[in-house]
Design a binder for these strands. Structure first.
Lengths: 337, 337
DNA sequence: TTGAAAGCGCTAACAT
DNA sequence: ATGTTAGCGCTTTCAA
């Protein structure tokens, strides 16, 4: 079942069929109708491989997600897919593990699928120009920027929150409520990633308030998953219970931390307040509801697509967009004032 | 950068390069080494479109997931991807919404990507032979079976738990602990899906124990997501509080239900016990930990791939595998005895 | 063991 | 407005 069969069936040449199929103007209505009819009768479906082989460029946009099953990404992925299809493009989703190198994955995906552009979700923060050299298509980093790398600002696009500032804002909220002994739960203080950035925000907030940094209140889980977060919180509790609030760098980690605090005999928020950043669905259903700074996940996904397509279609150059978070006032923070 | 460049670079013909790339036997070691070297130096990546165009069949296995962001699927997807790649195949993931028809999506994906086989995750339970006729490749239903449809058992494969029996088991556990007034939270009693099956199990357990069905204790949320589950539970509470336990058909719904119960002033498990089925990561971190029947998600994904590849490679015909759940004893069930 | 050459199904010049 | 035809990059006969 090829274009040739359709051509025979409708009594025209293959090029005419091709024209009809690709919405080219120079086809008479009569012929167009006839061809479309043959297509329907024959249940003809174009062979994409043949198409891709011959077309200079595809309509594929890649979305490389690092960290399978990270709940924060779900809503973003949905939004990206929707925006991509609405624009008439196809989304190619590729999930990789945290250990994997997303630039390598992206480069081979780009080659394999002839991608027009790329969105990276949850990547590293320290790309070098050498590493991105293999990527000869525009790309936008979604939910992160190249904070620790040496990429020129003009070499890529991004849409993200100001991680350091937002973390600072979260901690300052705790301080405003009278908390002085504030612990922090993070992946690592120096992972060159979101964790390190938000840790900086934590320190900045303390500094501004004149609170000295107490290293014993810094809990490193070594990973972003809930199991690690739970254990990290337990270790913190073994070390000290001399804190009234906990700032967690992500919602999902915060959910696990809440559990650890409760299992450790602490009531939330009576004995320990907790605040986080992300705003995933699940943290709406903790008891008490998690107080958190919500990232506008859907808007970020849509914006990433907008930026990318502006580049792909040469409407605009690269750009970097900062979005704001929204405070969700749950019941997990108690005022000491 | 084509196979031709590699051929020139290594001083052989394109066919030889092709042979090396496809692990054909009749190539001298010397030539093979030389070609591989050229490949590396040139960073050559085969053009998949050209490959697919010429090859009678691809190495692609499709995974169609219905219900984006359903946390239960994450672990399954991971397992499928791993098993597929380990077997030397490529996984093509396609997510669709609950409203979308996965058979249509699957059929067009199969055609477009020349799929060898298909795994359906979270599909419908009522396929008819006519609907699956378009699918001319083997497929296996993962985490569900065609319980309400008219498919011949030999027309497809499946790996799933015995939803009705497991639901019955969960409810019987509540009964064994002395509960008689047991509510149930589900999507719908007649959605021809997992919800209906597990509802049957609920009724069977009551029946066996001689407990009459009380329709006022049946809460239909109308959807599987947490927001719907929360609202459904609230409506239940408005109607009646005369129950000591709640069986929820899925973990994620149970998490939302727990919140609703708490918000309604009920303590868990003192005022209301709760049990569910699924065993997703998140339900490990509720307070108290959710008591649930864990589906072996990773094993199910791996098994689905095994079955499918057995069919694809003609090692075996179709088969239906039933797996067992494991009880996770959380703290959400209280004994009345 | 290797090479030459014929397509795979499609699009896009180029002709008409 | 429509047809003819040359490839796209690759695999695979068939010959050598």
């Amino acid at each position: 079942m090829t274009i040739k069969d359709v051509a025979e069936r409708s009594g025209v040449s293959v090029s005419t069929v091709s024209r009809v199929l690709n919405d080219h103007p120079d086809v008479s209505d009569a012929v167009r109708t006839r061809v479309l009819e043959a297509v329907r009768e024959l249940h003809y479906v174009p062979n994409n491989s043949a198409r891709d082989l011959v077309r200079p460029q595809s309509d594929a946009i890649g979305l490389v997600v690092r960290g399978v099953g990270n709940p924060f990404f779900s809503a973003v992925i949905r939004a990206v897919e929707e925006a991509v299809s609405r624009a008439g493009y196809t989304m190619v989703l590729h999930q990789i593990n945290t250990e994997d190198n997303e630039l390598l994955a992206a480069a081979s995906l780009a080659r394999a699928k002839k991608l027009r552009g790329l969105i990276l979700l949850g990547g590293c923060f320290d790309y070098t120009p050498e590493q991105t050299a293999a990527l000869d298509i525009p790309f936008v980093c979604c939910s992160f920027t190249n904070s620790f790398g040496s990429l020129k600002k003009t070499a890529y696009s991004s849409v993200s929150i100001d991680d350091e500032a937002e973390a600072c804002r979260a901690v300052e909220m705790l301080i405003r409520e009278g908390h002085r002994k504030i612990a922090v739960l993070l992946d690592s203080t120096c992972d060159h990633s979101i964790s390190e950035l938000r840790y900086r925000g934590y320190r900045r907030a303390l500094e501004r308030a004149g609170i000295p940094l107490d290293r014993s209140l810094v809990a490193e889980s070594g990973d972003f998953d809930m199991a690690a977060a739970y254990k990290g919180t337990c270790r913190l509790l073994e070390r000290t219970r001399d804190f009234t609030a906990l700032f967690v760098i992500s919602d999902s980690m915060a959910v696990a931390a809440m559990k650890a605090l409760r299992d450790g005999g602490l009531r939330i928020p009576e004995d320990c307040s907790i605040i986080a950043i992300d705003g995933i669905d699940m943290s709406n259903y903790t008891v008490p509801t998690l107080t958190t700074l919500i990232q506008p996940q859907a808007a970020m996904g849509a914006e990433a697509v907008r930026i990318l397509l502006d580049m792909v279609e040469d409407r605009a150059g690269n750009r970097h967009v900062r979005v704001d978070t929204t405070l969700r006032l749950g019941g997990s923070v108690r005022s000491l004032n």
